[in-house]
Simulated scan of single mutants.
Amino acid sequence: MELRTLEYFVAVAEEGSFTKAAARCHVVQPAISQQIQNLERELGEPLFERRPRQVTLTPGGVALLPYARACLDAAARAFVERSQLLGGSLTLGTVSGLQGTRFPALLGAYHRRHPEVALELVYASTSALLGRVRDGSLDAAVIAGSLNVLPDGVRARTLLHDSVVAVR
């Protein structure tokens, strides 16, 4: 059973006509008729009562219709959701020492939410990362330290505050 066949079935059911369903689906009427006949053969029962100038659902057609609609809706949603996925790549610089912070969890959550994004991590010093963000070889960087002196064209936003504690 193919999605296209279910689309034709729903169109005939809603239009009440093979001809109108063919126009709605932008195909010729014999194509619709053939697909419906194949579907009926596959399911082992007629789906439509064919009368002059009118087509109505049989009990089998009535039973199939909500499932056919649900299947078509699910397929359409899947492709809409897929088209809304972010794609491409993200090259992210980071300083070492962030392993004990919330950063790895944030990065993991980002990857789960946007699995189509290829993520590359680059480790370097803060000054090297800032230079690479400025020259465009990094998309962004997570740095530690003061944000008082940033190169021109580089903007910053605080992601988290952590404490460094000395113990003895």
Rank of each mutant, 00 (worst) to 15 (best):
P104N: 03
A105C: 05
R102H: 09
V133P: 08
Y123T: 11
R134L: 10
R102G: 12
V95N: 00
L121M: 15
A124C: 10
L106V: 07
T126D: 09
E116A: 01
L130I: 05
T94P: 04
G100Y: 15
L98K: 00
S125I: 15
R134N: 12
V117R: 08
S127P: 03
R134G: 08
P115N: 01
Y123M: 06
Y110G: 09
T126K: 09
R112I: 12
E116H: 01
G100Q: 15
E116S: 05
T94E: 10
L92R: 01
L130E: 01
L130T: 00
P115E: 01
L121P: 08
V122R: 06
T94C: 14
R134D: 04
T94H: 11
R112F: 11
E120G: 07
L129C: 05
Y123D: 06
A109P: 07
T101F: 12
L92H: 08
L129I: 08
Y123L: 12
L92F: 13
V133Q: 06
L119D: 04
G108V: 05
V117D: 02
G108N: 09
L130P: 01
G100S: 15
A109G: 09
F103M: 08
L98A: 01
L130G: 02
E116N: 02
R102Q: 11
L107H: 02
A128V: 11
R112P: 05
R112C: 10
R102K: 07
L106E: 07
R102S: 15
L106D: 09
G108Y: 07
T94I: 14
T94V: 13
V133W: 04
T126P: 07
L92W: 04
L121R: 09
V122T: 10
